[in-house]
């Protein structure tokens, strides 16, 4: 039994909404347990000559934590070490999901703002970023999702909360595509090879849940007549 009474492979409540920012090309808002994250996608636009690549698009990811998002980060707004690291790993994960060679010389910006943090924000940001990219009409190889697995009380569990993350024996955020290709895998703590294998298997088994989550979000958006928000650039 875990600290909040969940089963080993039980996720927290997840709610996803897409298309909520008018001025972004695509946007998404996710509530994952107590995590609240807003993602906007801008572009593709022409990349500045200093960073442009004429064969593929450049992806820029900016992960920011609001000053009020959690206790430790209180009062700091400049990107800290943690934010810089997460921006980098998410950029690399998303670069492998987006068909970057379709937009040569382009720049795609993904802006992530964490309003409230309670463990597992990087994987929650990843799910929201994928939904926002689909909403923006950017070509993706496949849909992707992420869950942070971890080791608590000598057992591998899914979706660590903040206490489990801080007091547990290890934490393994994993982002994969629906087909099962790994896009991001980080590991902190001591974990055997077999435990890692079973963690990846557990994440892969949640495939259908995330597929339905993203599909439902878009079905809700398009099932009724579209609101005025769709008529952009007026």
């Amino acid at each position: 039994m875990r600290s909040d009474g969940r089963q080993k492979d039980e996720l927290r409540n997840i709610k996803l909404e897409v298309g909520i920012l008018r001025n972004a090309k695509g946007s998404a808002y996710i509530e994952w347990g107590m995590n609240k994250i807003l993602v906007g996608v801008y572009g593709p636009e022409e990349a500045p000559p200093a960073i442009e690549n004429l064969e593929r698009a450049i992806i820029k990811v900016e992960y920011r934590m609001a000053t009020f998002c959690s206790l430790e980060e209180h009062g700091k707004y400049v990107p800290n070490r943690r934010a810089v690291e997460i921006s980098k790993v998410l950029r690399e994960a998303l670069s492998n999901l987006i068909l970057v060679d379709r937009y040569p010389g382009g720049l795609i910006e993904v802006q992530i703002l964490v309003l409230q943090a309670e463990g597992g924000t990087r994987v929650a940001s990843f799910v929201a970023a994928v939904a926002a990219l689909i909403d923006a009409g950017i070509a993706l190889r496949d849909i992707g999702y992420g869950i942070s697995a971890g080791k608590v009380n000598n057992e591998i569990v899914l979706d660590l909360s903040k206490e489990e993350d801080n007091l547990g024996q290890g934490d393994i955020p994993i982002c994969i595509t629906r087909k099962g290709d790994i896009l991001l895998l980080q590991l902190d703590g001591k974990i055997s090879y077999e435990e890692l294998q079973s963690a990846i298997e557990m994440v892969r088994s949640k495939r259908e849940f995330f597929e339905n989550l993203i599909r439902d979000a878009f079905t809700r958006r398009y099932s009724k007549e579209l609101s005025n928000d769709l008529v952009r650039h007026i």
Binding site: P44, I134, D142, E211
Partner: peptide
């Protein structure tokens, strides 16, 4: 029904079932 990227071969954007063009593209 909404068709997501990767649901079928050569689908990389969001589609609605029965309509050829993608909902939003660049």
């Amino acid at each position: 029904r909404v068709i997501l990227p990767g649901d079928m071969e050569n689908i990389y954007n969001l589609h609605l079932e029965g309509i050829d063009a993608a909902i939003e593209t660049v």
